[in-house]
């Protein structure tokens, strides 16, 4: 089955984020303005009789309906993107197995004879070709860790006895910082890794050098 859009988790995130953020900012501004208005307009003063109105169900239903509509729109946006991210079925993807442990990472390229290992004293760096889909198979050897690449706006748990599969697509070139984002014991804060995003030819050279 072909994918409905690009695999980049970063662009997926940005799309959903901008919708949620601006609706959220809009609602926040609205509430601040209305509360501010109430504070100024309905301040107690000589001769002000408080209203005895205690209920207006049409307003309640109207507001509930409006919020329900916003919720429906947000959930629709989320579901649409989630469906894309759940679909990890590209046959031509570069496969990388990731094994997290206290407190380091092991990256294996199946069928390539390449493995990169490093821990909190010696941060490992692995390489990916830019613009291609990378299929990760993530697991852990001891406790639960999480594989987070902030630049990709994506993370997934590494759970012992379970393999989580997901795709990423790296744009441009350079190094992305990755880290563990699930508290996993003493040296959790030092459990980091790097990703070299390389052109196809540099990537092949990198593989050859690490065989």
């Amino acid at each position: 089955m072909s994918r409905p859009g690009p695999a980049s988790t970063r662009s997926d995130f940005s799309h959903v984020w901008s919708i949620y953020l601006w609706i959220g900012v809009g609602v926040a501004v609205l509430v601040f303005v209305v509360v501010g208005f109430a504070i100024v307009r309905y301040r107690a003063k000589e001769g002000r009789e408080p209203s005895r109105l205690a209920e207006r169900n049409s307003v309640e239903i109207g507001v509930a309906t409006l919020i329900a509509a916003i919720v429906a729109f947000l959930v629709f946006t989320t579901f649409h993107t989630e469906a894309k991210e759940d679909d990890s079925s590209r046959p031509d993807a570069v496969k990388i197995d990731v094994d997290a442990f206290q407190w380091g990472w092991k990256f294996t390229y199946p069928g390539q004879g390449v493995t990169v290992v490093g821990d909190s004293d010696d941060e490992p760096n692995f390489a990916v070709p830019a613009g291609r889909t990378i299929s990760f198979a993530l697991t852990s050897s001891d406790v639960i860790h999480a594989f987070w690449i902030p630049g990709q706006r994506f993370k997934k748990d590494a759970i012992p006895g379970r393999t989580n599969r997901f795709d990423m697509e790296f744009d441009g070139d350079g190094r992305e910082q990755g880290l563990c984002s699930e508290y996993c014991g003493l040296r959790h804060s030092k459990m980091r890794f790097g990703v070299w995003v390389l052109s196809d030819s540099s990537y092949e050279r990198w593989l050859a050098a690490h065989r």
Binding site: F13, Y20, T78, E82, E85, P150, K155, K156
Partner: peptide, 15 residues
């Protein structure tokens, strides 16, 4: 509401 959306939580979870 933001963190109730999985694609957004994938970034900010644990942060």
């Amino acid at each position: 509401i933001i963190v109730a959306s999985p694609p957004l939580d994938y970034h900010v979870n644990g942060s």
